[in-house]
Design a protein around this nucleic acid. Structure first.
Lengths: 349, 349
DNA sequence: TTGTATGCGTTATCAA
DNA sequence: TTGATAACGCATACAA
């Protein structure tokens, strides 16, 4: 049975406003006598008073809550993002509410609905992608919004992500430099920002090296590990299999690893592997994966800073921030000798 | 600019109550004319009406929100728990708010405070452990509470967890059966329910096999991977190192794996490893880990069921549910020959 | 230094 | 079939 300001007012014999001022007003605008202050505080404690944020939010038209939406909490990349956002938001006195959409656009839709109904003060969204009509509702509701990692290039919305094109270039160029030319790309969810930009980088790297793009080597359809598993199995069965695979995300890479182990394919001896994302467990795997690291902490700091800025000043111009990716070279890529390279090229029909 | 029932009432010329009934009353208790219904609905849509859950919660004294507190979202075990709870709660028409305490008891305290201030309808907590005075506040507030995985044995609170003692017994007995007798235990956070019960199982297994417990082989102090890494390095340096390690959690096992790789120790050839928890990535590791699996889905179903029961009937007797763990034998344990076994025993001083 | 009164948006009760 | 009104708990403008 939680007590209210009214209860305390009655018990102490002062008015509700006085109680409110003693307990919540930190502006020191009112000078309440020490006597009253102590009396109120002790009674509040005794009665186990706890502020009702629903009432406060209703009155203030402000909840101090930020809604966060991610496609998959269980993905190490996003759980790192959540941890990082949590810390940043806490600093500013904001709480946050997380929704996991399970990469399902209809859940994303209802998550946004719920969050708006809760009257959150702002929203940070890593969208499933593909479709964006529901994002407009946020703008119509005039709720400050920042998109993170999974953005929409063509929408006029504050957003921060890693430079995916550059990241993919780094990865594929590294493979090319090590002598690979038959390089497969296992995609994430087609039509999403993260996927299309990474695909673009992959193609660009091959183009620049004058390696013909083989559409048979571009496979896959979502960011989960099962996708990596199945597509790797498929690639290994090809008449002329790739010598290297570039995966669009960490879970995909895990799946690829599993498929290789099952098929007795040794990495990097038989097949090289580079992945986008650089989750903590990368270094626990054997071999340690060569990977593209995203600056998660910086990304989250910027997202929160941009959100605060938008909350203060709702009609500043929108910004799109691209952060630098980093290639972490470990042990999953083998140097291909010129000979074996040529062999592969000859094999190509 | 979100509109309110009042706005719609004014625009349509009907009363606020009528608007409310058209938009939110699903009891069909009132018979509103089709004409009015349509008019209200179309205006609501046109004005972008969105219910204010703060106001509803205040009026109803019910929020349809469940608070969930876990020690570490980034731990695969807990992210699986969250996913599972989310699904279960959604079925019952409840939303949920997650807090990550980062294994920090003071954050746990403030998380509980926030959640109570938000007037959640119930709470599911996987506590850091160690200390429990703040849990009493939940009971004082009369908010339905279920503890999951990280419980307090001695508190009269509904709780559900795996049978940790039995799980540890399964793990250690398996090692013993394979010929090991020098078995180390890398603990999680001492003083927590999960850790103490697993330690108890470890000791019991050794006792039953009449293997003398060597306190030097019981090491570690939290559930993170760094702990596993450091303690494994330490164990490997012992004059008489263990032939097998049992780790109290998945992240600890990851750390152990990393240490072994760095030291050129091959698993299972040079060292056997069994871990509590069986996260998805277990099968992506080389070697695949022999592990104790917790029935996460069942655990979460039960937790939610118990919470609903408690919400309906606040003074039913409390229950403590223990679920069956399962040993998944994979490739991280080697059979020790009698000879090498004896060698080790002789080495013991 | 403290009190009174009002309204935030909703739903339930009572009345018509 | 619909409407008026009160109340949920809080913060604040205005009064005293």
């Amino acid at each position: 049975m939680s007590s209210t300001l009214k209860d305390i007012a009655q018990k102490t014999g002062v008015s509700v406003s006085t109680v409110s001022r003693v307990l919540h007003d930190n502006t020191k605008k009112y000078k309440i006598s020490d006597e009253t202050q102590e009396k109120v505080k002790s009674v509040a404690k005794e009665m186990g008073y706890r502020i009702n944020t629903l009432a406060r939010g209703l009155r203030l038209q402000k909840t101090f809550e930020i809604g966060v939406i991610v496609p998959d909490i269980a993905n190490p990349f996003f759980s790192a993002v959540i941890k990082s956002l949590a810390g940043e938001l806490r600093k500013g006195g904001y709480n946050f509410i997380v929704y996991d959409t399970d990469e399902d656009i209809s859940i994303e839709r209802s998550a946004i609905k719920s969050l708006l109904e809760k009257r959150v003060d702002g929203l940070i969204i890593a969208s499933v992608g593909q479709e964006f009509s529901h994002i407009h509702k946020v703008r119509e509701a005039k709720i400050p919004l920042v998109m993170i990692d999974r953005c929409f290039d063509f929408l006029d919305i504050d957003s921060v992500s890693v430079d995916n094109v550059k990241g993919a270039l780094l990865a594929v160029n590294h493979l090319i430099k090590e002598g690979h030319s038959r390089i497969a790309f296992i995609q994430g969810l087609p039509g999403t920002y993260a996927n299309e930009t990474r695909l673009q980088g992959y193609k660009q790297a091959l183009d620049e090296a004058e390696i013909k793009i083989d559409e048979h080597l571009i496979v896959g359809d979502d960011f989960r590990s099962l996708n990596g598993y199945l597509e790797t199995k498929h690639l290994l069965k090809l008449t002329s299999p790739p010598t290297a695979i570039f995966t669009a995300g960490d879970l995909i890479a895990l799946g690829a690893l599993e498929a290789c182990r099952e098929n007795g394919v040794s990495i990097p001896k038989d097949l090289s592997l580079v992945t986008f994302d650089d989750p903590v467990f990368t270094s626990y795997l054997s071999p340690a994966l060569t990977a593209i690291e995203q600056p998660i902490t910086k990304m989250c700091e910027m997202a929160v800073a941009m959100l605060y800025r938008r909350m203060r000043n709702s009609d500043d111009e929108r910004r799109k921030v691209l952060l630098e990716p980093k290639l972490n070279v470990r042990n999953s890529v083998a140097r291909l000798s010129a000979l074996s390279n040529i062999t592969h090229i000859t094999k190509k029909q």
